[in-house]
C-alpha cells in the first residue's frame, strides 16, 4: 500500500468513527462522503454470504489455456460484473458456473468451483442448471407462445398443476417487467415481440425456474438505450431475490448495476473489488489503463 492509499484508508476510518459517534445526532450533515462510500462501509461490517467460490481454477480448450488460476467469490444478492477486453475469458468463466463448458468438446477444468460450499462437479448438471439460469446476448425465446416459453421449463420438470402454472406465468412476467405489455396476448408467438421484450421474456423464463443465481452474458448489447435501461432497472430489482453475474462491455452499465466488479485480461483475474472502489481507485495499473481507455 502506498502512502496516499494509507492516508485514504485513514480518512475512511476517521469518517467511519466520526459517523458512529455522531449516530442519532440530527445536527450533522446528512451526507458524509458519497453514498457509495457509505455502502461500502456497511459491506465491511456485515459479512456476506458466499454463493460461489472459485479456487485455483484453470480452464483449457484442448491445449490452449483460457483461464489461469482464478480465485474469486460471488456474494449472495449482489450483482457481480465481469469486464475485460474481448477474448479475455469472461464468457468462458461464466459458463463454468452452470457447467455449460462440459458440453464443449476438449474443454477441461482443473481447480475447484464450489456452489454453497459444494464442488459443482458433484452436483447433477441438470439440477445445477435449474438453480443457475443463463440469459444470453441475443434474446433466444423458444418458437412458441409467450405463455409456453414460461411454462416449458417447469413442465419439463414435471409440474402439471394448471392453476400453479397460470399463476407462474403472471408472476414471472411481472418479475421480468413484461406482464403489462403482453397480458392480452399470452397465446401469441414470442417471436413477434420486440428485441427488448424478448430479452425480458428470457429473463422471465429464467425466473420461472425459481433459480438462485442468474448469469447474464452481455444481456443488453443487442438492445437500444431504452430497452437497456429497462433491463438495468430490472436487474436492480432482481438482485433482491437472486444473485446475479453479468458480463458487460459497457462500463457505465457495470457502474450502474453492479456491486462488485471483476476485471479479466488474457484469462487472468486482474482485480476484484467493490464497483465504486474499482472505478474510482483501481489498485492495478492494468485496470486503470483499461477503464480510462489507455489500454492498447
Amino acid at each position: 500500500m502506498n502512502e496516499q492509499e494509507e492516508k485514504r484508508q485513514a480518512r475512511l476510518r476517521a469518517m467511519r468513527e466520526a459517523d458512529s459517534r455522531a449516530d442519532g445526532d440530527i445536527g450533522r450533515p446528512a451526507v458524509v462522503g458519497a453514498p457509495a462510500v457509505a455502502e461500502q462501509e456497511r459491506r465491511e461490517e456485515v459479512p456476506e454470504e458466499v454463493v460461489f467460490e472459485a479456487s485455483h481454477l484453470n480452464l483449457y480448450y484442448g491445449n490452449t489455456q483460457a483461464l489461469h488460476d482464478i480465485n474469486m467469490k460471488i456474494y449472495r444478492n449482489k450483482v457481480t460484473a465481469f469486464i475485460g477486453p474481448s477474448g479475455c475469458g469472461k464468457s468462458t468463466f461464466l459458463r463454468c458456473f452452470d457447467r455449460m463448458n462440459d458440453l464443449i468438446d476438449g474443454c477441461r477444468v482443473t481447480g475447484e468451483l464450489r456452489y454453497g460450499g459444494v464442488d459443482i462437479n458433484t452436483i447433477n448438471p441438470i439440477l445445477l442448471r435449474s438453480r443457475v439460469g443463463m440469459v444470453f446476448q441475443q434474446p433466444n425465446p423458444f418458437p412458441m407462445s409467450i405463455r409456453d416459453n414460461i411454462t416449458y421449463g417447469p413442465r419439463c420438470q414435471g409440474i402439471k398443476d394448471r392453476k400453479y402454472l397460470r399463476q407462474l406465468v403472471v408472476d414471472s412476467l411481472n418479475e421480468g417487467a413484461l406482464y403489462s405489455e403482453v397480458k392480452d396476448r399470452l397465446r401469441s408467438s414470442a417471436l413477434a415481440l420486440s428485441g427488448g421484450q424478448q430479452q425480458r421474456l428470457c429473463i422471465a423464463r429464467c425466473v420461472a425456474m425459481k433459480p438462485d443465481v442468474i448469469l447474464m452474458d452481455e444481456p443488453t448489447s443487442a438492445l437500444d438505450p431504452i430497452a437497456t435501461k429497462r433491463i438495468e432497472e430490472l436487474i436492480q430489482k432482481l438482485k433482491e431475490k437472486y444473485t446475479i453475474i453479468i458480463v458487460t462491455h459497457n462500463m457505465q452499465q457495470a457502474t450502474r448495476v453492479s456491486d462488485y466488479t471483476a476485471f479479466f485480461m488474457l484469462g487472468k483475474l486482474v482485480e476484484f473489488a467493490p464497483t465504486s472502489e474499482f472505478f474510482s481507485h483501481p489498485k492495478e495499473k492494468a485496470s486503470e489503463d483499461y477503464i480510462t481507455g489507455r489500454f492498447s
Binding site: 492509499e5 492516508k7 480518512r11 475512511l12 476517521a14 469518517m15 462522503g33 458519497a34 462510500v37 474510482s280
Partner: peptide
C-alpha cells in the same frame, strides 16, 4: 485530484 478526498471527507 490526487487521491479522492477533500478536507476530511472521502468523496470518491
Amino acid at each position: 485530484i490526487k487521491n479522492g478526498f477533500h478536507k476530511d471527507t472521502v468523496i470518491i
